[in-house]
Amino acid sequence: MSSDTEYELQAFSQSAPLTLGVELELQIVSGQDYNLVGAAPDLLREMAGRQHPGDVKPEITDSMIELSTDICQDYQDALTQLRSIRHQLVSQADRLGILLSGGGTHPFQHWGQQAIFDAPRFHHLSQLYGYLAKQFTIFGQHVHIGCPDPDQALWLLHAFGRYIPHLITLSAASPFVQGIDTGFQSARLNSVFAFPLSGRAPFVLTWDDFAAYYRKMVATGVVKSMKDFYWDIRPKPEFGTIELRVMDTPLSVERAAQIAAYAQALARYLLQEKPFAPQEDDYLVYTYNRFQACRFGYDGRLVVPGSAEQRVIRDDILRTMAQIELHAYDLGSTEALNLLRTEVLQGRNGASEVRDAWAREGSLEEVVRQGCERWAGRLS
């Protein structure tokens, strides 16, 4: 007989407001043919006991790993930690004769060749989702933002919904899938959307209401923990954060830190200025806006929630950057914002850089090799 405690949501932990945490899923690449290689167990063994911030963990298949920072105060803290973890990872990868890369998808790997990492949770997911589990050999950046209390966390989660196209476009780095240019800026998110508990969180603004929703979901047997939700943004009660999950893993740790800084400044702007009140009807255009960003990036068009106004995504990002400029200054991330603004004005992101490399080299193997060199900090 089930007890009521089985259905209870974990209490929302205390967290310093606006602190950051960054997670990056990385490709493990063969130094011979530049395809993915199932070397995660070997790399994790080499990393064991090494001194670095944060953590390095397995992911669902053997050809990927996830790095995560400790709690970061600001952009420079995140950048320093990410560079330190990268240094250790690249050093140990070099010892093993393997390479590491950013990017949301590997340009020519085939999902059927991937092996599930030997861990109970990953085997469970493989049994549950079938071939989708191996197709989940895709690579994302997650950013955690500390929230002062659970109700403000839910408010911020829904307020961020209208800026999801920004985060997708700035990080987009997955134009190729299985050797084909998909025409998308971020093809990775199409794989995420295949999961039944993906999409967006239910529109509730109090932790009590969210806990009631969670109890109902657990009672159905569909959900066993918060990890079962693959939402674009989800609360993380154990950390006292919201987790932004739509970004592709950028091609460098520097870009990953800049995107985290943009999210932090945007969160400060939203929480302090409250420029609008989130509404359920904001989600009427959510999927459309999300698609436009995935497909067209900076040139996509979004519908401003609560209106019929349409804006080019590039223009909306630049407008928002102007609105959050003082917040970025107060947080010490003016440099990050300026670097991102330059990319926006020039229409550059990871997807455009991958396509440029393909046009220049005519070889996806060479595109991957250069991506690995860039990730390692050996190629600008």
Rank of each mutant, 00 (worst) to 15 (best):
E361W: 14
L43N: 02
P202M: 08
G362M: 02
D118K: 13
Q32S: 14
H124K: 14
S171N: 11
Y163D: 04
I242K: 02
V29C: 11
E273K: 13
A187I: 10
S333G: 04
W207Q: 03
E243I: 09
G179K: 08
F239S: 11
A376L: 01
A263H: 08
K134S: 07
I98N: 00
F139N: 11
H327E: 09
F193K: 13
E243Y: 12
A201R: 01
R255G: 09
V204E: 01
S307R: 10
L339I: 04
L302Y: 04
S333H: 04
E353I: 14
G97S: 07
A351E: 05
V303W: 06
M226T: 11
Q88F: 01
A40C: 06
M247N: 09
C372K: 12
F136C: 09
G362C: 04
F160D: 06
L96M: 10
P107K: 10
G97R: 07
D4Q: 13
G183K: 07
L100W: 05
G103L: 00
A308G: 11
L20F: 10
G377F: 00
I116K: 09
F184H: 12
V246W: 10
R268Y: 06
G130L: 12
V56A: 06
V223D: 02
K134Q: 15
T69L: 08
T320I: 05
Y75V: 06
L326C: 04
W155V: 13
L331R: 12
V56Q: 05
A211S: 15
T137S: 14
